[in-house]
Computed example of a mutant assay.
Amino acid sequence: MEYAAPPSSTYWLLYRDPLFSPATAQIISLLFGTTYVGVLYLSQRARASFTPPKGGGVKGTRDDPEIIRARLVAVSLATFACCVGIFVLLFARVGYDTHFLDTTFDATLLRLGLSPSFDSVRAHLVVPALFLGPLFASALSRELPLQRHWRWRAHVIDRFCSMQGVRNYALAPLTEEVVFRACVLAVWHMAGISRGAMIGFAPLTFGLAHIHHGLETFHRYGRTAAAAKRAIFTSLFQLAYTTIFGQLASFLFLRTGSILPPVSAHIFCNIMGVPDPAWELQRHPRHRVAIYTAYALGIAAFSMTLWRWTATADNMYWPDDTALRMLRY
């Protein structure tokens, strides 16, 4: 096979005809998602009990520190395996020639958004701008850092330095974004799927990966008809929320070509939780107008910055006019 670009350039690996069909890409992305979730149940040490322990506590549940450790090891290995899968897909395209090892490795890093870029720094501020309303409500409650009701141990040590904190605010966001954003979108891009479809439909894999939490809800609340309804509602809500967030994270990834903005957005959303303006208005009834205004300003700031602050030069997923002209020749 002959290539026009020199081996030192990675563009010939990045902007070629589709490597496989969209159907194949969807199968591979589902395989990635199944691998990530499946490892949580393959190992006895990582498998959590759905039934709450007698006498309370977290022993044997998904919040058991021992189970968290085993799961973090399992999903880290699964994430590495998915990244290796991207390398193999690219390497198989050019043939098993050691001459292309370094170039394929560089192309893999680019496709996974692991090549450092300082152009995407502002993209990390887009999601915090959206949360201006909840942040303002926290300020009214004096719960922001260095305010009256903020405590170093309670708000930092106990929350972030526990095994639950490491899972919720470090390894889970990182591994999930690498698998469900970088690896899945890389595969869809290799199949020539449009950016609109990647943003709109690829995150469904991420949403479906959270469905298994419904079993935990069903068992936790007694395995009754009421528990089943609660589990279904919880699963549907989580599917919708994670899919919508996945669409935003997919846009950040494709727009910046970096996995870091989606990871920081994921961590920030985990810290803030789902906004609850009704609860905030109940806590601060005298500041209703101010809270409404803060929410409106947050939405406006998000809308104004989402496109501008995510623009990144030399981005293979969202090439500018110069890159597109280079591609034609």
Score class of each variant (00 low, 15 high):
residue 317 Y to N: 08
residue 234 T to S: 10
residue 189 H to I: 08
residue 296 A to Y: 12
residue 314 D to N: 08
residue 199 I to V: 15
residue 196 G to F: 11
residue 4 A to H: 14
residue 66 E to K: 07
residue 144 L to P: 00
residue 179 V to S: 02
residue 124 H to Y: 14
residue 274 V to G: 02
residue 96 Y to M: 08
residue 95 G to F: 01
residue 58 V to Y: 03
residue 185 L to T: 07
residue 275 P to S: 11
residue 84 V to I: 05
residue 190 M to S: 05
residue 89 L to A: 01
residue 14 L to V: 12
residue 235 S to Q: 00
residue 293 T to D: 00
residue 270 N to R: 04
residue 267 I to G: 04
residue 113 G to S: 03
residue 307 W to Q: 11
residue 157 I to W: 14
residue 112 L to N: 02
residue 249 A to N: 09
residue 71 R to D: 00
residue 81 A to M: 01
residue 113 G to V: 05
residue 173 P to S: 12
residue 81 A to S: 00
residue 134 P to N: 10
residue 172 A to M: 15
residue 20 F to K: 09
residue 99 H to Q: 01
residue 72 L to H: 11
residue 124 H to R: 12
residue 285 P to E: 06
residue 237 F to K: 07
residue 71 R to N: 12
residue 8 S to K: 14
residue 153 R to K: 14
residue 144 L to H: 01
residue 60 G to A: 13
residue 304 M to G: 08
residue 324 L to G: 04
residue 293 T to V: 00
residue 121 V to D: 06
residue 265 A to P: 05
residue 146 L to W: 07
residue 260 L to Q: 10
residue 179 V to Y: 06
residue 202 A to D: 10
residue 278 A to I: 10
residue 84 V to E: 08
residue 70 A to K: 13
residue 204 L to M: 05
residue 282 Q to T: 13
residue 309 W to S: 04
residue 131 F to Y: 12
residue 281 L to P: 08
residue 216 E to M: 04
residue 20 F to Y: 14
residue 147 Q to Y: 05
residue 51 T to Q: 14
residue 239 L to N: 08
residue 247 Q to C: 15
residue 154 A to H: 15
residue 21 S to W: 06
residue 16 R to Q: 11
residue 164 Q to N: 13
residue 63 D to H: 05
residue 224 T to P: 07
residue 220 R to N: 07
residue 73 V to W: 13
residue 54 K to T: 11
residue 245 F to A: 14
residue 218 F to R: 06
residue 59 K to S: 09
residue 67 I to P: 12
residue 144 L to G: 04
residue 14 L to W: 10
residue 246 G to Q: 09
residue 264 S to M: 15
residue 119 D to F: 05
residue 58 V to S: 08
residue 322 T to S: 15
residue 264 S to L: 15
residue 140 L to W: 06
residue 124 H to S: 12
residue 88 V to K: 01
residue 286 R to M: 14
residue 248 L to M: 07
residue 206 F to A: 04
residue 249 A to C: 09
residue 193 I to Q: 14
residue 251 F to C: 06
residue 236 L to M: 05
residue 54 K to V: 14
residue 174 L to I: 15
residue 64 D to M: 06
residue 69 R to K: 15
residue 231 A to T: 07
residue 34 T to P: 11
residue 26 Q to W: 11
residue 268 F to G: 00
